[in-house]
Design a protein around this nucleic acid. Structure first.
Lengths: 231, 231
DNA sequence: AAGTGGTCTAGACCACGAC
DNA sequence: TCGTGGTCTAGACCACTTC
């Protein structure tokens, strides 16, 4: 007698059958009860296996409708948004950081729109540079909403980068990130110590703490930067 | 009497306590048995809630060690890699596609390295353009391994884009994607109908079918393209 | 060695939604 | 309406890892 059948065994087996086209895209799979009988285990075990296949985007499940192989297996990648500091240190480089400016001001119009702020909302505008082994790595241009994070008006960002500080101060936020490519203008080129007119990888992130706008930041990465994702 | 406590209730409640610093980062949480007693439910229910919090990157769990709030709540974003066609159509635009060339050849040296191919491996080299409402959207430069996908040597890529064809032919692959920014050279600029020296968003994807190298593709997106991710 | 999470069971009830 | 997945239970055994 072999080992008891676990949900991972079932998951693997079902996935293999799908991969080998034994069960084709769009096809209705056997119900949980049937599979449980075939594998000689409880229905809960089959349920867990199928649930994970559903989470992984391999199958679709619907009550009464049963489980079907997805027509277009949409693979979804998960990637982490690390702290710049961690990102740099994980590459074996030494992280340093320099504050350029930190100013209290009234949110400009475009920022009001971007963060859905009411007029005259006060914000902290911070610009700084992150270095890896003393070479520019990322230029950060950030706006923090004073209403949501009042302490940002007082904190000395020479001490710690706004990136780190915010993660500790306001964890568990929701965010939206836009990645794009742009041409370096004079300011960015100078800050990142590269020529004007170079291609720059850019990320714009808007962050909320359950509906409350927290911060909007634009990140410019030095020439040659690559964002790697596996799935 | 309120409704029975479900795993989602427990998940939400535990998350709230963490968010409100009732349980601080690094702190040891009560064991499953204790929580089950508090919430008046079975341990399995608590287990599911905690398991999901672990998957979400909120807590760390270890046997005998118990569950702890993560020191740095690493939020992880999941995003889908859609078909170009679906991506364009989901924006309400009309998708068209044009094949530029499809050539059988021996893998060049850099590709041999990239895909870990043995020398003299034959590959299909395909270049094509994807259009949204008749405007260039993406330039695709792809290499397909004949050994892994023999049919690629015969298929007429005028009929269907290699992107679509491959997803149907070889689903369930593993991949690695590198995103970066680059400057448009003459070829790309012409294909995407934009000026030379513009910033281009670039994606390089390598794909395997369980250790067998399948394809390497470089995608150039038209000026102004943005990749959006929410989490 | 012992405690904690990981997993399984056999049975139950429920809710959604296809028919 | 009623079959299928969604979830819960109470109890059990196991595996990992820290003590």
């Amino acid at each position: 007698m072999l080992r008891k059948v676990g949900y991972k065994d079932i998951k693997r087996e079902v996935f293999n059958r799908i991969r080998q086209n034994e069960w084709a895209p769009g096809e209705l799979l056997p119900g949980e009860v049937v599979l449980a009988a075939e594998f000689g285990c409880a229905r809960a075990t089959v349920n867990r296996a199928m649930q994970e296949l559903s989470d992984d985007g391999i199958i679709d499940r619907r009550r009464k409708g049963g489980s079907r192989v997805k027509l277009t297996p949409v693979r979804q990648a998960t990637f982490e948004i690390p702290l710049v500091k961690s990102e740099i240190e994980s590459k074996g480089a030494i992280y340093t950081y320099q504050l350029i400016s930190s100013i209290k001001e009234v949110a400009p119009l475009w920022l009001q729109k971007q963060l859905s702020l009411s007029a005259y909302t006060r914000v902290q505008h911070i610009q700084c540079i992150h270095y890896a082994d003393d070479r520019p790595y990322q230029y950060e241009d950030r706006w923090i909403n004073h209403n949501t994070v009042p302490l940002s008006a007082e904190f000395d960002f020479n001490t710690q980068s706004p990136n780190e500080w915010l993660v500790n101060e306001v964890p568990y936020t929701n965010a939206e990130v836009r990645f794009s490519a742009t041409i370096s203008d004079v300011k960015i080129a100078q800050a990142l110590e590269m020529a004007n007119g170079e291609a720059v990888f850019k990320a714009e992130r808007t962050t909320w703490l359950s509906d409350e706008p927290v911060t909007f930041v634009t990140l410019y990465f030095v020439k040659g930067y690559e964002m790697l994702i596996s799935y």
